[in-house]
């Protein structure tokens, strides 16, 4: 989001940026990292997501035993007490299992479900969107109407029905979430393609005799990609919320599999006696969702070479 209104009459100023002096020989990666360093909010979000990523990759491997270990001494142990060791810093459940370990273990399912669902909707929605945008005609019309039909119907209800037809295993949850989000990617990509294909540089490529595949891959796809990445982060956050909602209602992931949403639901019965059982998994969902949102905001600006100066000038932070 532009963080400042351009001053009235500054149109004249921006034109004076002649050839920018000094070619930067940095690699693209270090360029991105130095940009990230300038925006502390985005940096913090990236850091948090990195921790979650580590948990997803090595968490179950390291913590699975601790998450399953019953410890009668620690039954319903309250949080913030270190006397039983740092594993119980967030408290323990009625069976004395460390909440921290369980959250770390559950991160894998939670994140993988969201990531897979988003990955499927990106690929399917992205390709369909590319087709619908570049080739107008009845295919495009049918795709759009279908997308409308899915979009105009509350996704939660669709998931509720579909998950009862097929049993609510991890795969089916992923598929349902993916299908319900495909229309978003389809619409976004189509709108972008419609706009980009009318741009002069695409016309220029056509006039040079470029074939459709070159135009799509060399000119249109790279322009759509940043939007897709940005949207993917947002959608990942949204899908996580929906998945945890489904699991909470008891129609998503089923025990013994565990996700953060399921943990909130489990803890609900102990609300009066052990509030932390529901509280911490919810905080985890919230923090990851926020981090994804913030990073997506930052990504949108950082991936656009024309917009990037906004980050480099750091006049106003984007929050």
């Amino acid at each position: 989001m532009p963080s400042s209104i351009p001053a009235s009459g500054t149109a004249d100023v921006t034109h004076t940026t002649q050839t920018v002096p000094g070619p930067k020989k940095n690699s693209a990666l270090s360029d991105i990292l130095s940009l990230l360093w300038r925006d502390k909010v985005a940096l913090l979000s990236a850091f948090l997501l990195l921790i979650v990523l580590v948990c997803v990759v090595v968490g179950p491997w390291l913590m699975a035993d601790k998450a399953r270990a019953l410890n009668l001494m620690a039954r319903n142990a309250p949080p913030f007490s270190l006397e039983k060791g740092w594993m119980f810093v967030l408290g323990a459940d009625a069976l004395g299992r460390s909440l921290l370990a369980r959250i770390i273990v559950a991160s894998q399912n939670t994140m993988l479900i969201a990531a897979s669902a988003v990955a499927i909707s990106i690929v399917v929605g992205g390709l369909l969107g590319l087709i619908a945008g570049y080739k107008e005609g009845w295919i495009s019309a049918v795709l759009l109407r279908l997308a409308d039909a899915i979009m105009s119907f509350p996704s939660m209800l669709l998931a509720v029905i579909v998950l009862f037809v097929f049993d609510p295993g991890v795969t089916n949850v992923i598929l349902v979430l993916a299908v319900s989000r495909i229309p978003i990617f389809l619409r976004t990509v189509r709108a972008e393609v419609l706009e980009i294909k009318e741009r002069m540089f695409v016309t220029a490529a056509r006039a040079m005799g470029a074939r459709t595949d070159r135009i799509l891959l060399q000119h249109i796809a790279p322009m759509v990609l940043p939007t897709l990445i940005n949207l993917a982060a947002l959608e990942m956050a949204f899908v996580m919320l929906v998945e945890s909602g489904l699991s909470f209602l008891g129609i998503g992931i089923q025990p013994p599999e565990v996700t953060w949403g399921l943990m909130v639901a489990d803890g609900r019965n102990y609300l009066g006696s052990a509030w932390w059982l529901s509280f911490w998994p919810g905080v985890a969902i919230m923090l990851v969702t926020m981090a994804l949102n913030l990073l997506s905001n930052w990504l949108r600006i950082a991936t656009d070479p024309v917009e990037r100066w906004r980050l480099q000038t750091t006049v106003g932070k984007n929050v």
Binding site: R199, M200, F201, T203, A204, A205, A207, M208, G209, A210, R211, R214, H219, P222, M223, P305, V306
Partner: peptide, 29 residues
């Protein structure tokens, strides 16, 4: 038969380098 369009900002792909832009005709042909 080649061409030059009105708005140079719009007719050059902002994500390509100048080298890529100028050699694009070679890539197409």
């Amino acid at each position: 038969m080649q061409f030059v369009f009105q708005d140079p900002t719009a007719s050059l792909n902002p994500r390509m380098t100048v080298g890529q832009i100028v050699s694009e005709p070679f890539a197409i042909h």
